[in-house]
Design a protein around this nucleic acid. Structure first.
Lengths: 252, 252
DNA sequence: AGCTGACATTTTGTCTGAGTTAATTTAGGA
DNA sequence: TCCTAAATTAACTCAGACAAAATGTCAGCT
């Protein structure tokens, strides 16, 4: 393991403040785990040796392990060591784990699985929103749609409006778990599909799809809203390039 | 708060090994947060004062905070302090957060929200399983159902068989995210509704409901499977007492 | 021979105290 | 008035020692 390859610039992490040392170590180890470099059942090596191998203090290393353990990736026990858990124990929907998963290698099968879950959850969310939305929610969604129309998804403002639309819709469900879940999933999908924005400007105009969802919710028609949202998400998946940009070297 | 009180008996935590000190602190603080004792925006007080107030070293306290931060509950930054995040940042579906949430106060509205999500996800899962299950999956579910029939949900073996059924069904979906999510949610619901097993022996025999799900999956009929699972879950919700058992004090 | 209990060992866990770094506040200057 | 630099304060990082826990080992007993 000579290469400390990763240039220190972890600058691409939009949502958090700059990572501290323990966060950096946790991220590094987390990626090694979710990418399979460390297999479930493997030991991570003693604290002392691991810490000095990473050129950090035992404190920083331990706090990193604590983070990984909090996300279900590892389990640390005296005399045994720190062991990588089976994948069934991982908190796959944790935002960081999701991030690490799609950072390391944008596995297309996994991406499909994520879209599948998003479809299930957000479609249902649209249905609930159609039943429970208040006029305030409706107004918020309308404003967001107008924002999407004037700016477009090509601008940051437009993307923010898109985000606002979906967020407001989720809030309208009144279900905090659905909000938490869908927000995280969508963020991960967004991160992954950010490449597409770069390749082709945009294959389709997403506004009509959003409008259909909005109108169904405004009319309080859950089934229609559900179907419209499902269509929207499936079209988004189609717009996602299913060919991995060949540059994806998995073998290090 | 003098004592180092905690008699070791945190025994109700079935899934983990005994908590260490940092885990205990994280749990304690986590419960304070999700229960609203600490409000979003509040500061947790300096490391030194907080640590000595809890009668632990700064190391243990810091590792506890690291755990909470990993679950999105707090955010620690130099000069600012450790601040409780807004609820939208919490990883509500994290198993520990879920545990803490329903440990502190079994909020009925929240419980309904959780059941709602479970209904959405697990019903969809049944549908996917009906499309994708292999004969091995089918055999596993059959065995589990037989186990439920011979033992009953009154015995530990029977409950294990019930768990096996649902787990195998989830595995049959082939979607790791759905597996991760549904497993966690069901565990939380199970923990919460464990009281019901005690109050009345069982209001209904859940076996027929499970059989309907099984048969739909065996017949590869997604819609039927989905409906059957939805019915099963809604009936489970009905069986859940909507009055909180005031005796819910466990130790302490 | 096989089992039971004490002990020895290894690894994480916890503690202490010092020094460092980052973000905010304040003061200074253009 | 606005921008820049120092002071402040909190978390962050480090180092090294000791404690506790889980495992493995071996003597002693049945």
């Amino acid at each position: 393991m000579t290469g400390r390859s990763t240039s220190p610039g972890q600058g691409h992490k939009a949502r958090g403040k700059a990572l501290r040392l323990h966060g950096t170590i946790a991220r590094k180890l987390g990626i090694l785990i979710v990418s399979g470099k460390y297999q479930p059942g493997d030991l991570l090596g003693g604290e002392i040796s691991s810490a000095e191998q990473l050129a950090v203090s035992r404190t920083a290393y331990r706090e990193a392990v604590r983070i990984l353990a909090a996300k279900g990736l590892v389990d640390a026990r005296p005399k045994v060591g720190t062991r990588v858990n089976p994948q069934t124990s991982w908190h796959l929907l944790d935002p960081d784990v999701l991030d690490w998963t799609f950072e390391s290698e944008p596995d297309l099968v996994l991406l499909d699985s994520l879209f599948e879950l998003r479809n299930v959850v957000e479609s249902a969310a649209a249905g609930f929103a159609a039943q429970r939305r208040s006029s305030v929610h409706l107004q918020g969604m309308r404003t967001a749609l107008e924002g999407m129309a004037t700016h477009t998804l090509a601008t940051e403002l437009g993307r923010q409006a898109d985000l606002d639309f979906h967020t407001t819709l989720l809030v309208a469900t009144g279900n905090p778990f659905i909000i938490s879940l869908a927000n995280g999933v969508r963020a991960a999908v967004r991160t992954t599909t950010i490449y597409k924005q770069r390749k082709q400007p945009l294959r389709r105009d997403p506004l009509p799809d959003h409008l259909r969802v909005f109108e169904a919710i405004a009319a309080k028609e859950p089934v229609k809203a559900q179907e419209a949202m499902s269509a929207l998400i499936q079209l988004a998946r189609i717009d996602t390039p299913t060919s991995k940009p060949a540059a994806a070297k998995k073998g290090r």
